[in-house]
C-alpha cells in the first residue's frame, strides 16, 4: 500500500477524543426502535405476543447472566445485547409458540451462537437468526403454524392460517386476490400488519418507524437495507409472476419478514460488513438469496443471512 486511501481507518497517537457512543447506548436504541413493531404485534396478536416475546427476552438475559457468572466473568447483560437478541428472536416467532420454544431458542442463540464463540463481537452469526433457524429445523410444524391476527386484545379464538407469501407460493396470485379483495386492500394489510406471520414481521409501517430512528441517529446506513430491498423488488418483478417481468414487487417487499430482516438483522454490526461497497454487495447478495429461496424452496428467509454472513469476510476485503 503506497498511498493511504481516504476511507481507511487512521489511528493517531494519543490523546484521543472520546465519543459518547457505547455498545450499551446503541443496543438500547435499537431495542427502542423495535418498540413500535412490538406494540403492533401486541395489538394484533394479543397477550400471546407479550408472553412469547417476554419469555424470549427474559431467558436470553438470564442465560447470558448465568453463563458469565458461572465462568467468573463480568456480566454484560446491562449493555442490552442479550435483551436485543431475545427481542429479535421473539419478534421472529409465531404467536402460538409453546413455552419451550422461546427457551430453547434463547439457549441456542445466546449460549451456543454468541457466548461459546467468545461473546459479543466474536460471534460469526447473528444469534437471533441462528436461534430461529435451529427452531425451524427442529420444530418445522410448530414454527410454521401462523395465527390469524384478530386485533382484539383477548385473542382466545385464534384461527390458524397461511401467510400471504404461503398463499402466493402454493395457490398463486388469484387465490391471494380472493382472500384480500383488491390489490390496494392487500397492500394496506401488508403495510399495516394485519396479515398472518411472525409476531413482529407483519407490520411494515411500525418497522419503518423504528428504522427511521436508527437511520437518523446514524447507527445504520442506508446501504444494506436499500440494496437488499431493491434487489428483492427487482427480482420479484422479473421472476415473481407467471411470465417474466410480470411479478409484483410490492408484495415481495412488504410481505414475509423482509423489512425486519433488512433494517434490523442484516445491519448487525458484528456479522455484517463495515465497508460501504461491501455493504452494497452484501445487501444484493441477501436479496438474491432471499428471492431464490422464496421462489424455489420452502424454508424461511433466515437461511439467506446465514449463508451471506459466511461470505462476510470476503465483503470486508472489498474496497
Amino acid at each position: 500500500m503506497a498511498e493511504a486511501k481516504t476511507h481507511e481507518l487512521v489511528v493517531s497517537v494519543s490523546p484521543h477524543v472520546r465519543g459518547k457512543e457505547t455498545v450499551g447506548r446503541i443496543m438500547w436504541t435499537v431495542n427502542l426502535s423495535l418498540l413500535p413493531a412490538f406494540l403492533m404485534s401486541v395489538y394484533y396478536f394479543g397477550p400471546r405476543a407479550v408472553y412469547v416475546t417476554g419469555l424470549c427476552i427474559l431467558t436470553s438475559v438470564l442465560f447470558e447472566h448465568f453463563y458469565q457468572v458461572s465462568l467468573n466473568k463480568k456480566t454484560t447483560i446491562g449493555d442490552g445485547s442479550a435483551f436485543l437478541t431475545g427481542l429479535l428472536l421473539g419478534l421472529n416467532l409465531p404467536a402460538s409458540s409453546p413455552f419451550y420454544i422461546p427457551i430453547i431458542g434463547s439457549l441456542v442463540a445466546v449460549v451456543i451462537t454468541k457466548l461459546l464463540f467468545g461473546g459479543l463481537g466474536y460471534n460469526i452469526f447473528n444469534p437471533a437468526l441462528i436461534g430461529r433457524a435451529f427452531l425451524l429445523v427442529s420444530f418445522p410444524k410448530l414454527l410454521t403454524t401462523w395465527t390469524e391476527p384478530t386485533a382484539k386484545f383477548i385473542a382466545m379464538d385464534a384461527k390458524t392460517t397461511a401467510t400471504p407469501l404461503g398463499i402466493l407460493k402454493e395457490e398463486g396470485l388469484v387465490k391471494l386476490m380472493e382472500v384480500f379483495g383488491t390489490k390496494a386492500e392487500l397492500y394496506k394489510s401488508l403495510f399495516m400488519g394485519s396479515t398472518a406471520g411472525s409476531l413482529g414481521e407483519t407490520s411494515a409501517i411500525a418497522l419503518l418507524v423504528g428504522a427511521v430512528l436508527l437511520l437518523v441517529r446514524g447507527y445504520i446506513t442506508w446501504h444494506i437495507p436499500v440494496s437488499f430491498v431493491a434487489t428483492v423488488g427487482v427480482l420479484g418483478w422479473v421472476f415473481g409472476g407467471e411470465g417474466i417481468f410480470t411479478g409484483d414487487p410490492l408484495i415481495h417487499i412488504l410481505s414475509g419478514g423482509l423489512i425486519l430482516g433488512a433494517f434490523f438483522m442484516a445491519t448487525d454490526y458484528v456479522t455484517g460488513p463495515s465497508v460501504r461497497k461491501g455493504q452494497l454487495i452484501y445487501g444484493i447478495g441477501c436479496g438474491a438469496i432471499t428471492m431464490l429461496i422464496r421462489l424455489r424452496f420452502s424454508r424461511g428467509r433466515n437461511v439467506c443471512y446465514i449463508t451471506d454472513e459466511l461470505f462476510c469476510p470476503a465483503y470486508r476485503q472489498e474496497r
Binding site: 451456543i112 427442529s138 420444530f139 418445522p140 410448530l142
Partner: peptide, 19 residues
Amino acid sequence: GNPLLIMILPAGGFLAVGL
C-alpha cells in the same frame, strides 16, 4: 412430545461432537 429434530440431522451431529 416434540423432539429436537435437528439433533438427528447432520447439523446436529456437528453440534453434538463440538459441544
